[in-house]
């Protein structure tokens, strides 16, 4: 599903250059649930943003679902993002003047799905994350966990190949975090490929594979026994 080869990325700040990713190689199969771990500043978000085409690598290869991703202009990147990828952010990134269902329907609008179908699908995914009764509430009327559920529903609505989540539990308490991870595991069980960036070991243990980043290289990459979040959730 995802193949990267010798991926490099530096940030230039004035005359200094910060080499963040130093030649990463990685391959992720369909249906995997991968945790990307590492201390703060180790380049986890940078990697995820490149995978999400929100940012560009300096050099290296990136193949997504058999499609080589290179020389992207913004228009092309937007289309790929819309078709292949769903994002879940630490800070939710919901549009504050749109209701839950309108937020969920937005990627479908950019897929040119007609209005009725948008409503239907958005409601279906809201139901899936357990927020059917909150469909017409604004983000400001929702709790952190509920907001993240809306964000997950929104990421799912476009039916992407891969879900990318950056510290999706970072702003939540541990109980809510486990509920969200339970949802993520459920979605993964249905076969969706998911990459989760986290620095919390317990969250990483709920994935099936853990990749450790340190100083811009992968220092460890191992498959693990998945801890089911449902065991922490009553």
């Amino acid at each position: 599903m995802i193949v990267i080869k010798d991926l490099h990325k530096s940030y230039r700040m004035g005359t200094n250059s910060l080499h963040v990713l130093k030649g990463l190689n990685l391959s992720v199969e369909e249906g995997e649930l991968v945790a990307i771990m590492g201390s703060s500043g180790s380049g986890k978000s940078t990697l995820l943003n490149i995978l999400g085409m929100l940012d560009e690598a300096d050099s290296g290869e990136y193949i997504l679902d058999g499609v080589p991703i290179r020389n992207l202009n913004e228009t092309k990147a937007a289309k790929y993002r819309n078709k292949f990828l769903g994002f879940i952010f630490q800070s939710f990134n919901l549009i504050n003047y749109k209701t839950a269902i309108e937020n969920v329907a937005l990627p479908l609008y950019y897929q040119r799905v007609n209005r009725n179908e948008r409503q239907e699908k958005a409601m279906k995914y809201l139901e899936k994350v357990g927020l059917k009764n909150w469909a017409h509430h604004l983000p400001s009327e929702l709790s952190g966990g509920q907001k993240q559920r809306v964000a997950i529903a929104r990421a799912m609505a476009a039916e992407p190949k891969v879900l990318l989540a950056d510290e999706l539990t970072g702003a939540l308490d541990s109980k809510t975090s486990y509920e969200i991870m339970d949802l993520i595991q459920e979605i993964n069980d249905e076969g969706k490929t998911i990459l989760v960036v986290t620095h919390e070991p317990d969250i990483a243990q709920m994935c099936k594979r853990i990749i450790h980043l340190k100083d811009g290289v992968i220092v460890e990459d191992s498959f693990v026994e998945q801890v089911r979040a449902s065991s922490y959730v009553q």
């Binding site: 913004e74 228009t75 289309k79 993002r81 819309n82 994002f87 990134n93």
Partner: peptide
């Protein structure tokens, strides 16, 4: 700016 960034992450093209 932020809203437009979200829209772009969700697949809005620059033209749109």
């Amino acid at each position: 700016t932020k809203e437009l960034g979200i829209r772009k992450a969700l697949g809005a093209t620059p033209a749109s």
